[in-house]
């Protein structure tokens, strides 16, 4: 049978225990998974100006801003409870953390409404138009 039979469930009850955490979308690829001293370095040195936040990471200047999740939406971080050993295997995910806003950073460029991630937040409302029930 094809791999399309495997199931990935999300244990929603885990939402109750999930911690609210700050999330940052960084404009670089960090080849690492695991702990990082985010609050000690990034949060501690971030400056809030009127229109943007500034910080530097690895000696490069970043500019960013906060983005809220669209109304009716919640940010979730899903984690595998057991490491899946193969593609065929059923997986169970839990909600490890939640967020209602994220901070995204551009490399040197001030944040603006043309940034792809800002525009991507249009999607839920358009999806509602395309997928909402149609009256008879």
């Amino acid at each position: 049978m094809s791999r399309n039979t495997s199931v990935t469930r999300v244990d929603v009850s885990s939402v109750a225990q999930a911690q609210r955490v700050p999330v940052h979308l960084m404009p670089c690829e960090i080849e690492h998974e695991g702990p990082a001293h985010v609050s000690e370095y990034l949060t501690a040195t971030t400056k809030d100006c009127k229109l943007e936040k500034t910080v530097s990471f690895r000696g490069r200047g970043l500019k960013g801003q906060e983005l809220s999740c669209p109304q009716g939406y919640t940010g979730l971080v899903l984690k595998d409870i057991n490491e899946p050993s193969s593609d065929q295997e059923d997986r169970l995910l839990r909600v490890s953390s939640v967020f209602d806003k994220l901070t995204y950073w551009n490399l040197e460029t001030p944040p603006n409404s043309d940034d792809a991630v800002v525009m991507a937040m249009d999607w839920p409302e358009l999806a509602q138009a395309i997928h909402g029930p149609v009256e008879d």
């Binding site: 960090i30 080849e31 000696g59 490069r60």
Partner: peptide, 27 residues
């Protein structure tokens, strides 16, 4: 992950070499 505090000049090859060899790679 972060390399160094802002006290260090990241553009100096000494700092870069150390980050390259002992830190996480960033692209």
């Amino acid at each position: 992950v972060f390399g160094y505090p802002q006290f260090v000049r990241f553009s100096w090859s000494t700092a870069r070499t150390l980050m390259d060899s002992k830190g996480v790679t960033v692209h």
